[in-house]
């Protein structure tokens, strides 16, 4: 059991190295598997996103497209070029509005609609989610101030 000074230090350092290596491996594996991509409806069409893959979709809610039947909601998200129907069961955020930006979380279904598990809220009337703003600017739909 008697360890020399050198052995002790070596044991401590190699133990530390092992823990750190495991932690790093864990973080990077998780980073590869657990990230969620953000797409606009056009990008979903372009990149042929597989149904079932969890993604975030953002864009503007099309005027007049929001239909509600009890807790079941459906609305169309567009980015000026492509439209996509999103279905969501639950209570929409207070600031959900037709004609305004929205970010939904969920996955593409086989019938080409988007099933949202979550619709993200904003706290601020003036706040446009950054991803949505960027996308819309690229598509030339929204000429907001340069941020």
């Amino acid at each position: 059991m008697a360890m020399t000074r050198k052995q002790k230090r070596l044991a401590v350092i190699s133990g530390m190295g092992l823990v750190l290596a495991l932690a790093a491996a864990l973080i990077f594996t998780a980073l590869r598997d657990q990230i969620v991509f953000f797409y606009s409806p056009s990008e979903i069409a372009e990149k042929a996103v597989q149904p079932g893959t969890p993604i975030r979709m953002g864009g503007l809610v099309l005027e007049g497209s929001w239909k509600q039947e009890g807790e079941v909601n459906s609305f169309i998200v567009h980015d000026g070029q492509t439209r996509m129907t999103a279905n969501y069961t639950g209570i929409l955020p207070d600031l959900f509005r037709e004609g305004q930006g929205v970010v939904t979380e969920g996955s593409l279904q086989l019938d080409g609609t988007f099933l949202a598990t979550n619709v993200l809220a904003r706290h601020d009337e003036n706040y446009m989610p950054r991803e949505v703003a960027d996308t819309l600017r690229e598509q030339g739909v929204w000429q907001g101030e340069e941020e």
Binding site: V19, A23, L31, V36, F37, F38
Partner: peptide, 30 residues
């Protein structure tokens, strides 16, 4: 290690967008 994990997860979207332009979210599962 946990701090580093949270830091990586928080900043990765920024870095990735700067490098590749892809927009991602690192969410609760990570």
């Amino acid at each position: 290690a946990a701090t580093a994990g949270v830091l990586v997860g928080t900043l990765y979207p920024l870095v990735l967008e700067a490098l590749t332009g892809a927009r991602i979210t690192v969410g609760a599962p990570f």
